[in-house]
Design a protein around this nucleic acid. Structure first.
Length: 192
DNA sequence: GTACTGATACTCT
DNA sequence: GAGTATCAGTACT
């Protein structure tokens, strides 16, 4: 598996969000190796995107979005859930891709344990679900995703033709922007 | 199958 | 104090 270099992330957020579909998220926590194929993402820009956390400037929370590309940005929402993002664009230009859903590949038993459910389709089919399945929380924010124990790897090109674009989910501003990408027909999506 | 609701705590105004 | 890039459970069709 080929680790994605920082240059992959230092591009337009929309392109990165689209090309992350089919890539593999790998997370090693001690001896446990967890991985999953990315089947759903959303792009968030900075000052030009009212739905983005970075829209009203840099704050304590969104600071990683303004940092260098290829870092993680994890935030807490709705009192219960974490969401995992990948920072894009060059340093000082805010941008991030929200990972909304995965297809579990390895460490499935560990994910079941973390989630407390056994149904494979329920493990990582949503942004809050996949962080819980992987054990990702605030302490995993602002980490370098080009290091060997927490990274993204290149996926297969055969997925390229099946990528579907739609509106973003769960936001109240700029709802109509077509910035959600997913693998059409994949059963692990958060919605169809 | 869809629709509604409460949980729950963090961030910014 | 208000709003939130969510989820699970319950009620209903």
């Amino acid at each position: 598996m080929k680790l994605l270099p920082r240059s992959f992330y230092e591009r337009n957020t929309r392109i990165v969000a689209q090309e992350l579909i089919g890539c593999i998220l790998v997370f090693q926590d001690g001896k446990k190796l967890l991985s999953g194929k990315i089947v759903e993402t959303e792009a968030y820009f900075g000052l030009s995107d009212p739905a983005s956390h970075a829209y009203s400037g840099v704050t304590c929370r969104n600071q990683p979005m303004f940092g260098p590309a290829g870092f993680s940005y994890v935030y807490f929402t709705y009192g219960n859930h974490y969401c995992f993002n990948v920072v894009t664009e060059r340093e000082s230009v805010p941008g991030a891709v929200l990972i909304r859903a995965l297809e579990p590949l390895s460490g499935i038993n560990q994910m079941r344990k973390n989630r407390g459910v056994s149904d494979l389709l329920q493990l990582t089919s949503g942004p809050g679900k996949l962080t819980k399945a992987f054990g990702i929380s605030a302490e995993h924010s602002n980490l370098d995703l080009t290091c060997p124990n927490f990274y993204l790897a290149e996926g297969g090109f055969e997925e390229f033709m099946k990528i579907k674009v739609s509106k973003r989910i769960g936001i109240s501003r700029a709802k109509d922007a077509l910035l959600r990408f997913c693998l059409s027909g994949n059963p692990h999506l958060s919605r169809n």
